[in-house]
Design a protein around this nucleic acid. Structure first.
Length: 694
DNA sequence: CAGCCTCGAGTTCT
DNA sequence: CTCGAGGCTG
């Protein structure tokens, strides 16, 4: 010891202190004072000093957060004070009942009773034991009575003080809290894993759990784990005079000792205060950088806590308020393959029905075989289902620890489940397809649905169920057959009374007159959607010209390259397609071949994007009016976008527009500009030309 | 040839 | 809405 020069020792102490302070500022105060690079430089300097003088290397040195040699297994730890679970409350009424129960038992006024409230982080509970201010043990909750000794892993968390700050603390105490991962850290971790081809984690909670249970603490050290304290358990009190201080007071001590506590922690009064806190937190929830699954409400007074005591395994003085889960686990019962309009086979998960964020989910798409492989999911597995900001449920992961012995692999069928044709997976493509074409009833149904859909011929009253029926009875094989349906015959169908049969026939009659663009879209050429169909209609002006166009002529059209040109070219040269097209014209389907032209188009060359909900019109109406002014209307924002119209509840597109500095206007401004543009463009228009919007 | 921009296709539940 | 892939541009 004595060989170490005084200056070196002092420098080491300073570095030690600076690094501890930096961790405290970053993790406890949320207020980084130095950059990551500066932190690393200080850490490296201390490491080199310690390398030269190993005596400087104390267990509480910041350099010791890098992890130690891998362990064989975790030792079992018995918690001196059991880590109990909490009762749950799922709504306001249950919160109110909790407050009343407590007030009645204490024989006091519930309205003035103080409760300490904080978010319930979605992570793993751990207990840290400090002796003489130094971290000596950290353990998982386990079953509440015994857990696993994960001290080496926990030492690597920079938000856990290895030595507590200040001087006033008990000789022996325990801090309980949650180990969790922030979204930002989780995303970065998964991005790295994806690059290295490693397994990605389904959610921050699983990532935190997996990281904490790493036997190699060097790996744990590289995981962005954090700790947030929620309770002080004093085992021995020699230096603190008032260990009976309210819970909220004790949380302040923890903070002063260098622990992170929730910045959202609040002391409130009575039922009103508790309920308001939970509602406020619910509103903040989506904006947080970490997952919470609810709030924890505790009676603040420790004396009251003691008086209330416990019922079986849960304290009477606390309750966990749980938000409806956005994520649930359930069993994957089966996987079926659905056949899409162009024959794409999509694996659909059949789930044991489970309530997720308010609705019961029984089906979820698995997209394709790549996704199945990525998830590593098998039939019979327990899977994690989420309904995030998006409404559509997705399977985000597998709970491998709960895999039964009898799971079955998911395999792409060799034959189409509907028509029995061979399936094929083209080189370089993710999807597999049924090769049956329109011979396959599933593809025929989907093609007809597409034909009748709103953006195509818009046949009112011809829904999914009816199409299924018509195809199964073989009344309809091609779109042209639709127009030969008769009301009396339709009325024979179950659940289709005379009135609706007549309505349908009328709707079919009305749909016969359409535009060239809609017609091209409706016939369902591969890779030809709404936008491409409109381009083709503008460019060729008639179906005749389009059907005779050479590959070169097709490629000259905007948005059409070799692949799409090939699809179009082939389509018009298939005999059955030619027949159907002739047949359609034969049964009286007509369209305007000449597109509206000649009117000035003030927005020519501009691309606009509509997002959110508009009050005075639908998005489609807005789109049509913009298009009539010469604008292109697209679904995604880029730096080439001329402007974005943001209605109510606009989401990611609005954000992207703001990031890219694209002009964003609200509905009022949009209406004013429309009026202006439309009047400007109608000045020169012929007086007889009607507006194409009401 | 890479990277950006757009379009097409598929999707759940009430 | 999101993903994947086709088309276009620098």
């Amino acid at each position: 010891m004595s060989q170490i020069p005084q200056a070196v020792r002092e420098r080491a102490d300073t570095l030690h202190q600076q690094l501890d302070d930096a961790n405290y500022q970053y993790y406890v105060e949320d207020d980084p004072r130095i950059t990551d690079a500066e932190y690393d430089a200080l850490l490296r300097e201390l490491q080199s000093l310690e390398a030269e003088h190993p005596e400087l290397k104390t267990p509480d040195s910041p350099t010791q957060r890098v992890g130690a040699a891998p362990a064989e297994r975790f030792e079992e730890v018995t918690h001196a004070v059991p880590m109990l679970s909490l009762d749950n409350a799922f709504d306001d009424a249950e919160l109110a009942a909790f407050v009343k129960r407590v007030a009645d038992k204490l024989e006091c006024d519930g309205d003035t009773l103080a409760f300490c409230c904080e978010p319930k982080l979605d992570g793993l509970a751990v207990a840290l034991v400090y002796e003489n201010g130094r971290l000596v043990q950290g353990a998982t909750r386990g079953d509440g009575r015994t857990g696993e000794d994960v001290t080496l892993n926990l030492r690597t968390l920079r938000s856990i003080p290895l030595k507590v700050m200040g001087k006033e603390y008990p000789d022996l105490f325990e801090v309980r809290g949650e180990v969790y991962m922030r979204h930002s850290g989780f995303e970065a971790l998964n991005a790295r894993a994806r690059e290295n081809g490693d397994k990605v984690f389904a959610n921050p909670r699983n990532a935190a759990a997996g990281s904490l249970r790493q036997l190699d603490s060097k790996i744990a050290a590289q995981r962005p784990l954090e700790f947030c304290a929620y309770q002080l358990v004093s085992r021995e009190n020699k230096s603190l005079a008032n260990i009976d201080a309210p819970h909220s007071e004790q949380m302040k001590w923890l903070k002063s000792w260098g622990f992170r506590i929730s910045p959202l922690l609040d002391v409130v009064k009575g039922e009103r205060g508790v309920i308001d806190f939970c509602h406020r937190l619910g509103e903040q929830r989506n904006g947080l950088d970490y997952d919470i699954d609810g709030a924890v409400i505790k009676v603040d007074s420790l004396r009251d806590q003691r008086e209330l005591g416990f019922v079986s395994r849960a304290p009477r003085w606390a309750i966990a308020y749980k938000y409806p889960a956005q994520e649930q686990t359930t069993t994957l019962n089966d996987v079926v393959f659905q056949v899409g309009r162009v024959g794409t086979l999509t694996p659909v998960a059949k789930l044991e029905p489970v309530r997720v964020a308010g609705v019961t989910v029984a089906n979820a798409t698995l997209h394709n075989m790549d996704e199945i492989e990525r998830l590593g999911v098998r039939i019979g597995d327990t899977v994690i289902v989420r309904r995030a900001g998006d409404v559509i449920p997705q399977i985000v992961g597998v709970v491998e620890s709960q895999r039964p012995a009898t799971t079955r692999a998911i395999e792409m069928p060799e034959h189409c489940p509907v028509c029995g044709s061979q399936t094929e997976r083209l080189e370089g493509e993710v999807a597999a397809r049924c090769s049956g074409g329109l011979f396959c009833p599933a593809q025929r149904k989907e093609a007809l649905k597409h034909f009748a859909s709103r953006r195509a011929l818009d046949i009112d009253g011809l829904g999914e169920k009816l199409i299924d029926l018509l195809v199964e009875r073989e009344w309809v094989k091609t779109p042209a057959d639709l127009f030969r349906l008769e009301a009396e015959r339709l009325a024979e169908l179950p659940r289709l009374a005379e009135k609706s049969a007549n309505n349908l026939v009328n709707a079919l009659e009305a749909a016969k007159h359409t535009t060239l663009a809609r017609f091209i879209y409706a016939i369902g050429i591969r890779e030809v959607g709404e936008a491409t169909a409109a381009s083709l209609a503008r460019h060729f002006g008639s179906l005749q010209a389009l059907s005779e166009a050479s590959l070169e002529a097709l490629e000259a059209v905007e948005d059409v390259g070799p692949v799409v040109a090939r699809h179009i070219h082939t389509f018009f040269r298939q005999p059955h397609n030619q027949e159907t097209l002739e047949d359609l014209q034969g049964v009286g389907v007509t369209w305007e071949e000449v597109e509206i032209a000649g009117r000035p188009q003030p927005l020519a060359g501009q691309t606009w994007v509509l997002t959110g909900t508009l009050e005075s019109m639908t998005r489609d109406d807005g789109k049509a009016r913009l298009q009539a002014l010469g604008a292109k209307v697209s679904g995604s924002v880029s730096k080439k976008t001329a402007g974005v119209v943001a209605g109510e509840a606009a989401g990611s597109k609005l954000e992207k527009a703001q990031n890219l500095g694209v002009e964003v206007i609200d509905e009022r401004e949009f209406l004013q500009r429309l009026a202006h543009w439309e009047s400007a463009s109608s000045e020169d228009a012929q007086p007889t030309a009607p507006e194409d919007t009401p």
